[in-house]
Design a protein around this nucleic acid. Structure first.
Length: 267
DNA sequence: ATGGTCGCCGAGCGA
């Protein structure tokens, strides 16, 4: 079994202890992180290395930043999302992972990416245009990944609530950049390529929120959003045996505003 | 409860 999780931690330095605690209990093989909010040199590597993880990070001062923590060997394939060379925001990292060998002479690999999509608010702004371009690039890249035919997992903070059921109040937030129809259409294009949203597939009932704003007592009122996703290629979906959202992490002291989403793939 | 979000870094921005 291979367990893969994604978590927007809203500063890895502020969340070091909580992430280490969660790793000890959830024991994922891979953890995809977003919003590191630090330079690579400032990443608190030691606590995670002590738990047996190697770390590949793409950092940036103060903003963004993505990483892959892994107990399996990684080979980095991309440190930026292809398609816009001038875009230097730290929002994408992709690696080839060697699966635990069932047969030494038939080693297979799978692809995994940690992505942090632009928020894009307010709708209609330059930020929103950047978000749509980023989604378009992701669709193009996902198509290439799918054509390679190996298991692939695109995980991260998509900043997309795919349907009205993924927002606590869809009417109130209908014009938000996380809900706008242009954004949802591009997310559906990813699904149309053959990628499956793990939670939507195994737990289609509404309410599996992954994010609650720090403001306005959103957690207390369960005013949440489902915007963190694990998208699985057909070859990964065929191995999917379980997935979930670790909601209780939002109720811990000094929490991130997002919680981990995980899936188990049989190996 | 004259409060009301965090985290970046040391003002105001981004989410």
């Amino acid at each position: 079994m291979t367990r893969i999780a994604t978590w927007n931690v809203n500063s890895i330095k502020a969340r070091t202890d909580l992430v280490a605690l969660w790793l000890k209990t959830a024991k994922p093989d891979l953890l995809l992180l977003q919003e590191l909010k630090c330079k690579d040199d400032d990443f608190p590597r030691i606590p995670f290395e002590r738990l047996g993880y190697c770390i590949e990070a793409v950092g940036q001062k103060s903003y963004n930043g993505v990483a892959i923590l892994s107990r399996l060997p990684l080979r980095i394939e991309h440190r930026r999302l292809p398609g816009e060379p001038a875009d230097d925001q730290a929002r994408y990292i992709e690696a080839a992972v060697e699966k635990p060998a069932r047969n030494k002479h038939r080693r297979e690999t799978f692809r995994v990416a940690s992505l942090y999509l632009p928020n894009g608010n307010p709708a209609g702004s330059e930020n929103f245009a950047y978000k749509l371009r980023w989604l378009e690039r992701l669709v193009l890249h996902a198509r290439r990944l799918r054509e390679e035919g190996q298991p692939a997992i695109l995980g991260g903070d998509f900043n997309v609530a795919p349907t009205d059921a993924d927002v606590y109040d869809a009417f109130l937030w209908g014009n938000d950049a996380l809900c706008r129809q242009e954004v949802r259409a591009k997310f559906r294009a990813l699904l149309h390529l053959g990628f499956s949203d793990a939670i939507a597939t195994l737990h289609p009932e509404p309410g599996h929120y992954t994010f609650w704003d720090y403001q306005n007592r959103a957690w207390t009122k369960n005013h949440g959003w489902r915007i963190d996703h694990l998208l699985l290629s057909p070859q990964a979906l065929a191995r999917l045996v379980g997935c979930g959202v670790d909601t209780e992490m939002r109720g811990k002291a000094n929490p991130s505003d997002h919680v981990p989403v995980w899936c188990d793939l049989k190996t």
